[in-house]
Amino acid sequence: MRIEGALTVLPFLIGAIALGVAGIFPEPWTWAPMAVPAIFAVLFIGLLPIKRFRSRGFHMSDDRVRVVKGVMFHADTVVPFSRVQHLDVEQGPLERAFGIARLILHTAGTHNASVTLPGLAHADAVAMREEIRAHVKRESL
């Protein structure tokens, strides 16, 4: 999450530094454009990832998964295995580099049709996918 935050803020910070060095703004305001991206850098790299990490969680029982998330707006979602249509384990380049993955449960319906569990160890995500798939298979028989 911190690397994603850094990659998000980095272009703005570079642009602000370039504006400050170029002297586009009058003398008292020369370094002022760097203040806003610097504040966002502190938020996106330092504080928000910690809050996002602490505000996420899940619990998998015999017949359902409960997912809780949200820093400002909290969501508590329960997905019964009987509603699962298909399952995906996905990895982006950063996730692959750190050996983590996202487990995505796709369900019937339009509202909250997919539920994502990010930040799982890749082996854990695959094991959870297989366990849920086995349960869905047993129920469909």
Rank of each mutant, 00 (worst) to 15 (best):
residue 48 L to G: 05
residue 25 F to E: 00
residue 141 L to K: 01
residue 5 G to E: 06
residue 101 A to K: 02
residue 87 L to Q: 02
residue 7 L to E: 08
residue 28 P to V: 08
residue 111 H to G: 00
residue 30 T to H: 07
residue 129 R to E: 09
residue 71 V to K: 04
residue 17 I to N: 07
residue 126 V to R: 06
residue 70 G to Q: 01
residue 81 F to T: 01
residue 133 R to Q: 13
residue 141 L to W: 12
residue 3 I to A: 07
residue 129 R to K: 15
residue 106 H to R: 11
residue 44 F to C: 06
residue 30 T to V: 12
residue 67 V to D: 03
residue 44 F to S: 01
residue 19 L to D: 01
residue 75 A to N: 11
residue 11 P to S: 09
residue 82 S to M: 02
residue 72 M to T: 02
residue 140 S to V: 02
residue 36 V to C: 13
residue 36 V to S: 09
residue 24 I to T: 11
residue 21 V to Q: 03
residue 140 S to H: 12
residue 50 I to V: 15
residue 39 I to S: 07
residue 76 D to T: 03
residue 2 R to H: 13
residue 116 T to N: 05
residue 42 V to P: 06
residue 136 V to R: 08
residue 35 A to V: 15
residue 67 V to R: 10
residue 97 A to E: 04
residue 58 F to L: 05
residue 86 H to S: 08
residue 86 H to G: 02
residue 56 R to E: 08
residue 99 G to I: 10
residue 18 A to K: 03
residue 73 F to W: 10
residue 52 R to S: 02
residue 110 T to S: 13
residue 2 R to W: 12
residue 12 F to L: 12
residue 39 I to W: 13
residue 28 P to S: 03
residue 61 S to N: 11
residue 130 E to G: 01
residue 84 V to W: 03
residue 24 I to A: 08
residue 5 G to A: 08
residue 27 E to I: 12
residue 96 R to D: 01
residue 16 A to E: 07
residue 20 G to Q: 05
residue 121 A to N: 03
residue 53 F to W: 14
residue 23 G to H: 11
residue 25 F to Y: 14
residue 74 H to P: 02
residue 110 T to M: 13
residue 74 H to D: 07
residue 86 H to E: 08
residue 125 A to W: 09
residue 47 L to W: 15
residue 125 A to L: 11
residue 61 S to Q: 09
residue 43 L to P: 02
residue 126 V to T: 10
residue 64 R to S: 12
residue 67 V to A: 07
residue 72 M to E: 06
residue 42 V to C: 12
residue 34 M to L: 14
residue 105 L to H: 01
